[in-house]
Amino acid sequence: MRFDWLYRESGRIAELFLWHLGLSVIPVVIGLLLALPLGWLAQRAGFFRSTLLGAAGLLYTIPSLALFVLLPLVLGTRILDPMNVVVALTVYALALLVRTVSDGLESVPPDVIQAANAMGYRRLPRLFVVELPLAVPVIAAGLRVAVVSNVSIVSVAALIGTPQLGLLFTQGLQLRFLTPIIAGIVLCVLLAALLDGLVLFAAKRMTPWQPGGAER
């Protein structure tokens, strides 16, 4: 480890870290916002379910590097445009979370839904007041997986040149120099742990009724 190198480069590393943070978080947030209505559709049996879950499974199958390369064809962007990475990671997050949201809504005990109906809740208020809050533990578990794997996948985008911590890896290999590589790995793991903890904390705050919080 060359700490003097780290010190000299700290400004650039911080910048890369912020890029990495943004590229990891924004897609998950967009993915979640899209997954909520889609997961709700998928949870209700029938055509939507098979189509949505099938499409999600298919999208999740495509290797990340391939998606990064192919998106410019679809979006009409340049290959270096960070937008490709954002969209690709949104696709992954969405594919994962649609299933999670649908599973989460499914995990709500039917008795509770019946009781809510019997009290006279209409469908939408019931969704927001009863079903979604009870689905939080399952959704949070999926969200943690999405966030953590996103942090890892973002670094792959270094191969097409998008700025984030992955550049430390490519730079390290070119220079045959371990310091940036180790720094990159450590920062990636730290970022993943930080975001994971954040989701865990938020989920615990949202589910005071759970014996162990969101940890299942």
Partner: peptide
């Protein structure tokens, strides 16, 4: 899961 594969 949190280890970046490229870095590794």
């Amino acid at each position: 899961r949190s280890l970046p594969s490229l870095g590794l």
